[in-house]
Simulated scan of single mutants.
Amino acid sequence: MLVDAHAHLLPRDYPADAPECFPRMEPIDGDTVRTLLFGAVRFRARDVFFDAERRIAAQDASGVDVEVVTPMPPLLRYDLPAAEGLSLARYVNEFAGTLCSADRTRLVGFGMVPMQDPDAATAELAAIQEQGLHGVEIASNVLGVSIGDERFLPFFAEAERLDLPVFVHAMPAMTDRLPASAMGTYVVGLEGALAAASMIAGGTAGKCPDLRISFSHAAGGFPLMLPRAQYFWGGAWNEEPVVPERAIAHDDGPSPIEYARRFYYDSLVFDRRAIRYLIDLLGHDRLLVGSDFPAMPREDPAGRTLLGMDLPAAVLDAITAGNALRWLGLPPP
């Protein structure tokens, strides 16, 4: 069994009388492709984004049994006024529910919320569940503020209370430290790292121990930052016992690596050497398959790199399916 825990959807259309803040999906004559127009975004969207039949056929063609479908990241527009952001989220969530209703054994839908208004976002979590959606997607920052900031703690506490899994998608924040061409590569990697680190450093991971949260692209550079954080916490190399006289940032709680091993990470890191590092540092029980499909092409077949790594059967089964089902709170098949 293979679960793709990182895939995306786009609504096919938006109402003719939709608020001006809504995106548009312009048809292309003689083609099933549509163009997403949303602020500065111009994106050519294939019909697999919004057609359930085509979507399931694509799963079959690439060896995917279940797909977690989340809103395409450009829809997470936290710069909109809160009321407009809520209206857009509700429309996208309704579409997600409709798309997944075609076959809920193959399509597991996540919704979105207006994180620019933490109170409204928190209140909307129950509505997401009531719509039959299985979790919520958020961006790695909210208008430049990392998700581990204390203002978002009630949101995560409510997700934990509702037993609702969270998917954090790395999203570029404005920076002039790198050229614009690096936004989708290096900056996304930095954002994933900052998001995961903020959940630990800001205290949310400690206050929400049962929160089921996953990070796209293995939280970017976060796994390489962890050993340094561990050293500052414990004063020792290689996760050895604490050396009190060397510890700089020690506390009585779990270590940074122990917190990090509560999170889940999709293993879309494009290199078997990186996957081996993730297994060694975080544990094979923390990793999921992800593809970013259909924004990016899947490997053929899905998970090809993982399948070719000669991993023990139990490890491979965990990464391809078992961990994702545990993150989602679904029973094994």
Rank of each mutant, 00 (worst) to 15 (best):
D149L: 03
T32R: 07
A219V: 12
D251W: 13
W233V: 01
Q230R: 08
T320K: 02
V187T: 13
R46C: 12
E53D: 15
A89P: 05
Y78F: 12
E258H: 10
V3N: 05
V168D: 07
P118N: 09
L88R: 01
P74M: 06
H6R: 06
L143A: 11
G221V: 08
Y186D: 09
F293E: 14
E160W: 02
V145A: 15
Q131M: 05
M115R: 02
S216M: 07
S181C: 09
P118I: 00
D292F: 09
G144S: 00
A16N: 13
V113E: 11
L330D: 06
A83S: 13
M25G: 04
R326P: 06
A195S: 15
R326Q: 13
H134T: 09
D13H: 07
A314F: 02
P11F: 02
R246G: 03
F232V: 04
F50W: 00
H8T: 06
A170P: 11
P15Q: 12
P172Q: 02
T320E: 01
L37F: 05
L36M: 15
Y91V: 03
L194I: 06
R228A: 11
H6F: 01
A139F: 02
F152Y: 14
F43K: 15
L80H: 07
A82V: 09
G283L: 05
D13K: 00
S198T: 07
L226G: 00
D13P: 00
D300R: 10
D29R: 11
P301Y: 02
A314C: 08
G234I: 01
G308S: 13
N141H: 10
H6Q: 01
L9K: 08
V142Y: 03
A7Q: 07
G148E: 09
I138K: 07
C21P: 00
S198C: 07
Q129W: 05
V136S: 01
A229G: 04
L36H: 10
L133I: 05
R273F: 13
C208G: 12
F22G: 11
L76V: 03
R261C: 04
P71R: 01
D65L: 01
L133Y: 01
A57P: 04
P227D: 00
N323H: 12
S255C: 03
A102L: 08
T70C: 11
M25W: 04
P23N: 06
L211C: 10
G132P: 09
P118F: 03
L125T: 13
G253P: 02
L37P: 10
R261L: 12
G132M: 07
A157S: 15
R46K: 10
R261P: 12
R261T: 10
D79A: 14
V33Q: 12
G206L: 06
A82Y: 05
P19N: 14
P81C: 06
Y78I: 08
V3L: 15
D163V: 11
P332N: 09
P71D: 15
A102Y: 09
A196H: 00
L278E: 05
P223I: 04
Y14R: 04
G184A: 08
S146G: 03
H8N: 04
R151D: 05
F263Y: 14
I147G: 09
F50Q: 08
V48H: 00
Q230F: 11
Y265H: 07
P27G: 04
S140E: 10
F156H: 08
